[in-house]
């Protein structure tokens, strides 16, 4: 078999892109390698390989930065927010895309406003107080759902256009009720866009710093980004632990991203194009 060699242009292109990739990969390497150094070596902030690998940095930072509690809080906050966003956005998009009347246009206007209007955070304090949700994870879950869901409704709406209405009609003729139609037939067909929305929303909520800073900044409700912020303020000179902390809060999303990243483009092809 004759081996096909790459054309000259491709080799140049790949070389240039590889050089540019270093701008991304070197910082990632910097995080990883410094998280394994001794405090003295890490404080040089360099790329050199450590003289001895300090794997215990990870367990140390878990203890010093009180990560187990924050980790649990972050998981609870992220999963409940994302679950509510996905299901409520898919249901809303189903009505908006399928139904063609004043209701669906009005809902669509609300979604569009939600994409542009910056959330009024300070008055949320009043709303949370009214429901006795100040300083609770549930309060921040609901804020995350309210402020981040419009993008999900919008993208789910775009995706639904590719699912033929004839499917609905056939199901209804076969005696399928509306809820069964949506949950058993339409929702499973929305799988690809749901994965896209899962990735985006879990990234936004897991990394959210602003809402937790405003509404959860005290006590036992703290999430990972906030503990990291406080930890850096207090132990900023312990660079090895700071880098270990970065790695711990970034790893879950990076893992999800590398396994599910091909869905990002699929979801965007459905949505972003129509602007």
């Amino acid at each position: 078999m004759k081996s096909r060699s790459l054309p000259y242009g491709q080799i140049v292109l790949i070389a240039v892109l590889s050089a540019l990739s270093l701008l991304i990969l070197v910082p990632f390497y910097l995080i990883f390698i410094n998280s394994l150094k001794s405090p003295a070596e890490a404080s040089e902030l360099g790329l050199a390989f450590p003289s001895k690998l300090e794997w215990s940095n990870y367990s140390k930072v878990f203890e010093v930065a009180d990560l187990p509690l924050a980790f649990t809080n972050s998981v609870v906050l992220t999963f409940s927010s994302v679950a509510i966003i996905l299901i409520s956005a898919a249901m809303a998009a189903f009505v908006i895309q399928r139904r063609k009347d004043g209701w669906s246009s009005a809902l669509n206007v609300l979604v569009m406003l939600g994409l542009v209007v910056p959330p009024a955070i300070v008055p949320l304090y009043k709303v949370l107080s009214f429901f006795h949700l100040n300083g609770t994870i549930l309060g921040v879950v609901l804020i995350n759902v309210a402020t981040r869901s419009p993008l999900s409704v919008f993208l789910a709406n775009q995706f639904l256009k590719s699912i033929s209405k004839e499917i609905d009609e056939a199901a209804i003729i076969d005696g399928c009720g509306k809820y069964k139609l949506f949950f058993r037939i339409v929702l499973p067909l929305m799988g690809p866009i749901m994965v896209t929305l899962f990735i985006f929303n879990s990234t936004f909520v897991w990394n959210d710093f602003m809402y937790v800073l405003y509404f959860l900044s005290s006590g036992k409700q703290m999430t990972l980004p906030l503990t990291m912020y406080l930890f850096t303020g207090q132990f900023g000179s312990m660079w090895n632990l700071v880098f270990a902390n970065i790695l711990i809060i970034s790893a879950p999303l990076l893992i999800i991203y590398f396994f599910a990243q091909r869905f990002i483009i699929a979801g965007m092809t459905a949505g972003a194009i129509k602007g």
Partner: peptide, 11 residues
């Protein structure tokens, strides 16, 4: 190129 987008701003 997409991977930095999943990092948090604090990191």
């Amino acid at each position: 190129f997409f991977s930095p987008y999943v990092l948090s701003y604090i990191a």
